[in-house]
Each structure stands twice: as C-alpha cells, then as structure tokens.
C-alpha cells in the first residue's frame, strides 16, 4: 500500500484542527440526547393519540396511579441531579472527597428511584396487557426506567474511576458527560410524571 511509508515515520495522526469551541464528546452527548428526546417524543405521540385523539379515559376505568409515591420518587431523582452536579464541581476543584461522595450518593439515589419504580409496578394493580392506557403507562415509565438504568451504568463506571483516583481539575469529562445524560434523564422524568400522573 502507498501508506506503508507513511506508517514508518508516523506514530499517530496529525492532531486534528479544532474548528469549534465545543468539545467533541460534549457535542456527541448532546446530539445523542436529541435523538433520545425523539424516542420519548414518539412514545408521547402514542400517548397523545390514545388519550387525546381517541379520548380514552385516563387512567383506565377502575385503576389509580400512585401520584404521591411517584411524587416522592420525583423528588429523589431530582435531588440526584444536585448531587451529580456537586460531584462535577468537586472534580473541577480537585476535591476528591466531594467527587466520591457526590457520585456515590447519585448512584444510590438513582438505584432507589429504580427500586421504588419496580415496586410500584408490582403493586399498581394493572398490567400492560389489560388496556392501551396500561401499555402507554408501562411503555413510557419503562422506557424512562431503561434510561435510568443506562444512566446508572454510566455513573457506575464513573464511580469506579473516581475511587481509583481518576479525574483532575483539568480532565473531568468522564464526570461531566454522564452527568449531562443524568440531568436529561431527570428532566425527562419530570415531563413523564407530569403527563402520566398529574394531568
């Protein structure tokens, strides 16, 4: 190959020119979040068609949604957004204890949210197979739950690395990028909670 000669006096590519102030990793995550928002958008479209266009009773006849428990759960998830921000700020300041405590608390809060969610499924008294309202309820909350799980997985990697001494005031993208995803998961939950439980 013509490139054989190039390999010999190159150990890597020339550094790419940075044509934007935005970090590639950050931009990638933002674009990924846009596509995630669209996945939720499609599920909300289903919700819209079944509840608004067809005017199906909400929640389905004879069922009740546990607004209060879900509300407490919302508070738990929202507070985890604060703790992940604390972790990032600590990483930026080089405060290792704050980083470790913040990220661990976030992980635990997220896991608690997921646990309460599953517990809610067990006690809610209807199944997705019962009616379309149930399908939408489980579909949307389940989709969100899956995203919480993805977020927790990412945070677990970050936690592991935080305890192994990674992340410095200069290099903390590994906290920042999963953190942005986590904020997205939280904001999305507020929308899901509002449309499914409150309205």
């Amino acid at each position: 190959m013509a490139s054989a000669a190039a390999v010999e006096h190159h150990h890597g590519p020339p550094p790419a020119n940075r044509s934007s102030r935005v970090e590639p990793q950050l931009l990638g995550m933002l674009l990924f979040i846009i596509s995630e928002i669209m996945v939720f958008g499609a599920f909300f479209t289903a919700y819209f068609f079944i509840r608004v266009v067809n005017g199906a009773e909400w929640p389905a006849q004879g069922t009740e949604l546990p607004k209060l428990i879900a509300g407490v759960n919302t508070a738990i998830l929202l507070s985890s957004s604060v703790t992940v921000h604390w972790a990032l700020e600590s990483a930026k300041k080089g405060n290792r204890f704050g980083l470790q405590a913040g990220i661990t608390t976030t992980l635990l809060l997220g896991a608690t949210f997921l646990f309460i969610q599953v517990n809610e499924y067990v006690h809610i008294g209807f199944a997705p197979q019962d009616h379309a309202q149930g399908s939408i309820f489980y579909g949307l909350t389940g989709l969100h739950g899956a995203h919480v799980f993805i977020g927790l997985t990412l945070l677990a990697f970050t936690t592991l690395r935080a305890f192994r001494g990674h992340f410095t005031p200069e290099e903390h993208r590994g906290v920042e990028v999963p953190g942005i995803y986590w904020h997205f998961v939280d904001v999305m939950w507020v929308i899901v909670y509002t449309t499914i439980y409150i309205i």
Partner: peptide
C-alpha cells in the same frame, strides 16, 4: 395493546 382498538389502542 398499542394497536388493539378493542382495548383503546390506535
């Protein structure tokens, strides 16, 4: 039941 009209699907 997303697409089952009998169960409010659309």
């Amino acid at each position: 039941n997303f697409f089952v009209p009998e169960d409010s699907g659309d």
